[in-house]
Structure formats: structure tokens, C-alpha cells
Design a protein around this nucleic acid. Structure first.
Length: 514
RNA sequence: GCUCCCAUCGUCUACUGGCUAGGACACCGCUCUUUCACAGCGGAAAAGCGGGAUCGAUACCCGCUGGGAGUACCA
């Protein structure tokens, strides 16, 4: 396979959307698979939309996912700078080159004039006004004005844009690796602005210049770019770079979980699900969002989940490590239709990852998370705890949420079940069991089980009469791992103490309810 | 409005010009477990519609419908 150079080129206007992470992933996979380079380029040519911190967010998000760029701002590489704002002079030079070649021209129409024209056309019933070959001559530009007039306007520092001179009556064919051949009629295309009045390039110019200079071989990006690809092809042609034009692959969009349209940050807030990799602290609460990381996702699960949104290996395997994705990935297998964001599936992936990760590998994450809750337990205890809990956990945070009773007296009690199961008259019996357990010397799970079973037999009691009381008394809940294992880990001292206190509490609950 | 893209279970999807259209998530039931979960087993669940070409179409072509994107001195 030929070596590739691919780029992920986000705009630093806020938090990186999860769809962007998928785009980055696909680019990364292709680069790794071929021994090529994965490049991060920051497209910050719109100064009005620039958001401080967004670039750091993008990098942190990629790194959290394990998608380290080979080149990019802060990552080195011989094709820099990788921030478009630092390449301004370059774009101006290339824009001028195009004007010189007659492939682009100066346009002096102001935004206000253009808006007024659009309005007027609309009133006249023309809903699709565009600045293009059909009406270019009636606008104020170096195509319609005399050379002297243009020279004069330029000499007077009249603000201008540079527009691409789209040819007339041509069919532009693009070859998309996902969609096949797509054709556009050039008369439908407008003369896109390449250089804005502030001297900054638009996406179209900067993108083509950079992809060319950075020797990009494959452009893998969202489907929203498909319509403007015709312009991009025209640009390659205008520069005479057709022979090194990259391959295009336009990815299907990620759609809302329910309803119409593509996934938006509002869906996250509305449905209480993350749509960003990491949390984003905006200026206002409305502009602040949680991320998959904060939700308790393992980045491997996020990647695995995202990989399958719009791509499928064609086999029935679903769990893929990054390494496996690298070798299995292929552009040909990317789907064409938009994919709905299915949070349930994301949860399932996460659960699978947690279950299938060795306890030792889970330890650092779980330990850090418990430390925040003030837990200070030795690794041996924690490892057993993880083994007991991991198949009952979907998000990392649930190790604490569902297992805090391993570290402190249960804070909440399942009163409903206590009322149902607790028989005050049986208290002496359970005190007897408690004492028998307390007499055990550091028993393991089997020993605890043996003790309880012997007790049940001696008193002719069934599991249903004893186990729920033990569970409720020790953990406060009916849910959880084997009660024998829980007690063995907790130790008999703690067990006896909790049971003693629980009997009192149980009676209180009973009488309060009576 | 105009341009472009898309169309298999509720969701993500597989396969194929001829098969009971396969898997996964979610859902329902059973087993395991007197908890929860995991796991196993089973169930319900799909080719949008209409035309063609073909001996035969979910598959190829056309139209319709539906969905999506673009249409900025935003990316």
C-alpha cells in the first residue's frame, strides 16, 4: 500500500464535536495502516469565530483518545507552520498568482451591496442568486471594470476580495472514494471568495494551498464538504496541481439519536448524553458541556463505538482494539448513509471494555476515582473490589456510585426491601449469626459461605430468609456481588459492626412505618 | 427555491441477480443466581412506493416519496 499523508483540520471555534473525533479517527487509521503521517492543522482563518482554548481542547481530546498527531502545532513536522493564521502571507501570494494567471479576480463589491442585491433578486423571484459567470460582468470587479479603474481602486486602498473565476459550461467530475463519481455543472457554481478583505483566506483557498504544500494524499472529511469539492477541484486545476490532487472521501454525517437532522450540542443537553469527547467550560452554563471522559467512558470504547458509526469491517466482530481497527480499516467499507448516534450502543461498548480489562489495568483509573471520594485502601483490597464490581458497571463512576459500601457505612438504605424482609423477632437469631461470623479469623469467601450455610442448616432457615438480611445489613442494597465475597473482603469486624447497627436501624424503619 | 448526497429490523449494519435476508444494541421471555449484573438460550422485529430491463430482483435503471447536506468576506 502506498504511503499516505492525511490531515485532520478542525477550526478552533469551541469544543471538538464527537463527529470530528470520528473524522480524526478514520484519518489516523489510514495513516497508521500505511505507515504514513497523521497531521493536525488548525484552521483559524476566521478571526471573529476564534475561541481561546479551543486548540488546546482539540489536542487534549485527540490525546485522550490516543490519536496523537505526527505533525502539527506543538508536535513538530517539516511542513509547518500548522496554524493557518501563521501562513497568511502564503495565501496572499497564491491568491495573487491566480489573479495573474487569469484564474481569479479582484472584486470590490461590499457585503452590504451584495446583501442588497440578494434581497432585490429575491423580491424579483430569484431565490438562487449567486455571484458567478452569468452575472460577474454586472458586478464591480476586475473582470467588469477597466484596467485603469481597477488600478485606481487598488491604489486608493479600496477593500477587495479575490474571487475564483469559475469557468462556464463545464461539467466538473469529482471522484469520491466513498460515493464514486459526482458531477457538478460549473454554471451552478458561484465565484467563491478566496481572499477576504481582511487579507485572510477563506477555507477553500487555505485548504487547497495547505493540502498541496503539506503533500496531503487523502482528504477524509465530513459530507458537508461534498458540495464545495467542485470548487476545490477547480482550484487544483487553476494552480496546475491536478496531478497531485489528493483522493477525496466524504464521510456520512452523524445524526441525532431521535428526530431529524445532524447531531448537535443541543442534543447532548436535551437528552443528558455527551456529544463531546471532553467537558467544555464555556462562558455561560448554556455553553458548557460534559464529555465522554467525564461521563465515565473509556477512550477505547469511545473509539470502537465511533469507528462503527458509518464503517463496518464486513465480519461479525464488533470489539476492536485500536490496533485491530488499524489493520481492518478500509475506505471502501465506509457507508454512504448518515448514522444515528446510538447512546445505548456506546454504553454497551464501555461496559464490555471494563469487563474485558484486567483488574490490574483498571486499578489506576479506579484508584484515582476513589481517591477523590476520600478512599485510601491498599491495592490488594482494590483489586478484589474491582474484580467483584466490574461486570456491574457501565461507567467508571459507578465503581463508587454502586460500590461505595465497600469503603464506608452505606449512606442510603433500600427501605422498601428492609420493611419486606426484616422480622424483628428474628433479631436474636441474626445476632447469633453475627457472633459466629465475628468469631471467624480472617475468612475467605468460602469460609464465610460455609459459616452462613452451617448456621442456616442448624436453624432450618432458607437462603431467602438469611441472605437478603445480610446483604441489606452490610451493603444497604439488594444489588451487588456475592454477599459472601463482599463480607470476606470487608472483614468480620466491619461486618459485625454494620450488622449490629443495622438491626437497630431496621427496627426503627419498621416501627416508623407501622 | 436551486445544487449535491442518501434509503435493509426501533438503532448500527452484513450479504447476495435465485438462501428461512445474517449479526450487534435496545426490547420481551427462559436458564444461571433466592440480589444485581455478566453469560447462555429463545422471541418479536427490516428491504419506502411505482415503473422498467431480466427466466428471476432487496440488489441494476428511471420516477416518486422520504431523509440529509450545501447554497456566507464560517469552517
Amino acid at each position: 500500500m502506498t504511503k499516505v499523508r492525511v490531515r485532520f483540520a478542525p477550526s478552533p471555534t469551541g469544543a471538538l464535536h464527537i463527529g470530528g473525533v470520528r473524522t480524526a479517527l478514520y484519518n489516523y487509521l489510514l495513516a497508521r495502516q500505511t505507515g504514513g503521517q497523521f497531521i493536525l492543522r488548525i484552521e483559524d482563518t476566521d478571526q471573529t469565530r476564534y475561541v481561546p482554548g479551543a486548540e488546546d481542547y482539540i489536542k487534549e481530546a485527540l490525546e485522550w483518545c490516543g490519536l496523537q498527531p505526527d505533525e502539527g502545532p506543538g508536535y513538530g513536522g517539516g511542513y509547518g507552520p500548522y496554524r493557518q493564521s501563521e501562513r497568511k502571507a502564503l495565501y496572499q501570494k497564491y491568491a495573487q498568482e491566480l489573479v495573474g494567471k487569469g484564474e481569479a479576480y479582484y472584486a470590490f463589491d461590499t457585503s452590504d451591496e451584495l446583501n442588497a442585491r440578494r434581497e432585490a433578486e429575491k423580491e424579483a423571484g430569484n431565490h438562487s442568486f449567486r455571484y458567478g459567470s452569468a452575472n460577474r460582468a454586472s458586478m464591480r470587479n476586475s473582470e467588469s471594470l477597466s484596467e485603469a479603474e481597477v488600478a485606481d481602486l487598488l491604489a486608493n486602498k479600496t477593500p477587495y476580495t479575490i474571487r475564483l473565476k469559475v469557468p462556464q459550461d463545464e461539467i466538473i467530475t469529482i471522484h469520491d472514494q466513498v460515493r464514486g463519481e459526482v458531477q457538478f455543472q460549473s454554471n451552478e457554481l458561484d465565484d467563491k471568495i478566496l481572499l477576504k478583505t481582511d487579507g485572510m483566506p477563506t477555507y477553500h483557498l487555505a485548504n487547497i494551498v495547505d493540502d498541496h504544500l503539506m503533500e496531503i494524499t487523502h482528504v477524509i472529511r465530513g459530507e458537508e464538504w461534498l458540495p464545495s469539492t467542485a470548487h476545490h477541484v477547480l482550484l487544483y486545476r487553476a494552480f496546475g496541481w491536478e496531478d497531485t490532487m489528493p483522493n477525496f472521501a466524504h464521510l456520512p454525517l452523524i445524526l441525532k439519536p431521535t428526530g431529524k437532522g445532524k447531531l448537535s450540542k443541543r442534543d447532548g443537553a436535551k437528552l443528558g448524553i455527551p456529544v463531546f469527547p471532553l467537558k467544555w467550560d464555556g462562558e455561560t452554563p448554556e455553553d458548557s458541556f460534559t464529555g465522554f471522559r467525564e461521563f465515565g467512558f473509556d477512550p477505547r470504547a469511545v473509539l470502537n463505538f465511533l469507528a462503527f458509526l458509518g464503517w463496518n469491517p464486513g465480519t461479525e466482530q464488533e470489539m476492536f482494539s485500536l490496533e485491530e481497527l488499524i489493520s481492518a480499516f478500509s475506505i471502501e467499507k465506509i457507508g454512504k448513509a448518515g448514522a444515528r448516534f446510538d447512546f445505548d450502543k456506546a454504553k454497551w461498548f464501555n461496559q464490555q471494555y471494563i469487563i474485558n480489562t484486567p483488574n490490574e489495568d483498571l486499578l489506576p483509573t479506579v484508584k484515582a476515582l476513589l481517591a477523590e471520594k476520600g478512599v485510601d485502601q491498599d491495592d490488594e483490597f482494590l483489586l478484589t473490589f474491582i474484580g467483584l464490581m466490574k461486570e456491574r458497571v457501565v461507567f467508571y463512576g459507578e465503581f463508587w456510585d454502586n460500590g461505595s459500601y465497600f469503603f464506608e457505612t452505606p449512606s442510603s438504605l433500600d427501605e422498601k426491601n428492609i420493611r419486606k424482609k426484616w422480622k424483628p423477632e428474628k433479631q436474636p437469631l441474626f445476632e447469633d449469626l453475627r457472633d459466629q461470623l465475628a468469631a471467624l479469623n480472617a475468612p475467605d469467601e468460602a469460609a464465610v459461605e460455609g459459616c452462613v450455610k452451617a448456621f442456616m442448616e442448624a436453624n432450618e432457615l432458607g437462603f431467602g430468609a438469611v441472605l437478603p438480611i445480610l446483604r441489606l445489613g452490610v451493603a444497604g442494597t439488594m444489588k451487588g456481588p456475592s454477599i459472601f465475597a463482599v463480607m470476606a473482603l470487608l472483614g468480620m469486624e466491619t461486618v459485625a459492626e454494620r450488622l449490629t447497627n443495622s438491626f437497630t436501624t431496621f427496627n426503627a424503619i419498621k416501627t416508623a412505618n407501622a
